Simulated scan of single mutants.
Amino acid sequence: MNTSSSNKEDYLKAIYENNGVDAYVPNKILANTLNVSPASVTEMVEKLQADGLLDYKPYTGAKLTETGRNHTIQVIRNHRIIETFLFEKLGYSLLDLHRLSEEMEHIKDTVFFSKLYHFLGEPKTCPHGGIIPTETHYNELYTTPLTSYIPGQTVTLKRVVDTASLLEFLASINLQVGDKLTIQNKDAFNEIISFTINDGQTVFHINEKQAGMLFADK
């Protein structure tokens, strides 16, 4: 897989993870997720639309076409099966999973991934909480971002977007999928959300850009 193709697949995965199967994902969200400029997003989504992988509407965003969805499902399925194996069987951390899975997801052996999936017991989700998709079951199970909750609410972290910068932050505060978060404050002016973890006393802070890539459930 050359660099250009890998870069395109990063965009497709980001669109998928932000509910781009059913809805248009704004360029701003893609820019935040991928840590790139809005101009770069526009350039790439136009290329992907020309390839028939996206339906792109200026000022609205991008949505996967059926062709794009099927291609992305296969890449994400491979990626998340590898992640699950590395995490459950080899003990890699969530942060370390990212790089290795990116390298291994492009193996062109469908039998390998099928055998590995059955070996793992056919898990429903990966260590980051994302669904391990099939052609018929591909919508993410958890789609409500942390930004949707208000001070005083306690929620369970169910899914995180698989990006290196976000995973580094989560590792730095020891926040993991399955932890309970209690929202303490939302500073709209500075776009900061404050929370505690698992009824602890330490208050942590996250910006709304990062919080939009964490998905929780009551």
Results as ranks from 00 to 15, higher is better:
L34R: 06
Y59Q: 09
D217T: 12
G212C: 06
E102M: 10
Y117I: 10
T202E: 13
T144A: 12
I206C: 03
G200N: 13
N198E: 05
N32V: 02
K108N: 09
N78T: 04
H71S: 04
S40A: 14
H71D: 02
A31S: 07
K63W: 07
T156C: 14
D179Y: 11
D109Y: 11
H79A: 00
N18F: 15
N198Q: 07
N27T: 15
E140M: 14
Y59L: 08
H71F: 08
I73A: 03
I29D: 00
E135S: 15
K13F: 07
L94D: 11
T202V: 14
K89V: 10
P127I: 14
N185Q: 14
H98T: 05
Y149F: 05
S165D: 14
N18S: 15
N35A: 14
F85L: 14
P38L: 12
L53N: 10
A31L: 00
G20I: 01
S172N: 01
L54D: 01
K180G: 04
E208F: 15
G91I: 12
H205W: 00
E208P: 03
T3K: 09
T72A: 03
P127A: 12
E43F: 13
K13M: 14
S37V: 05
E140T: 11
T156G: 11
S101P: 04
V36K: 08
F215V: 07
T143V: 14
E168K: 00
V160K: 08
Y59A: 07
V45Q: 04
E140I: 08
V36R: 06
E46F: 06
I132R: 02
V41G: 10
T143N: 13
S40K: 05
A216Q: 02
Q184F: 00
K115C: 08
K108E: 13
D51R: 05
G121W: 12
E191G: 01
I29P: 00
E83P: 08
K28N: 06
I193R: 03
T196C: 06
N18R: 15
S194D: 10
D51H: 04
I197P: 01
S172K: 01
G91W: 13
L116P: 05
D187Y: 13
A62M: 05
C126W: 04
K108M: 04
K63S: 05
Q201N: 04
L167N: 04
L53W: 12
D162Y: 12
E46S: 12
Y138H: 10
G178S: 15
F112Q: 08
T60N: 09
L146A: 05
A164E: 15
K209Y: 02
M44V: 02
S165F: 13
D199G: 03
D22C: 12
A31I: 00
G129H: 09
H118G: 04
L141I: 14
K89Y: 09
P151Q: 13
L167H: 03
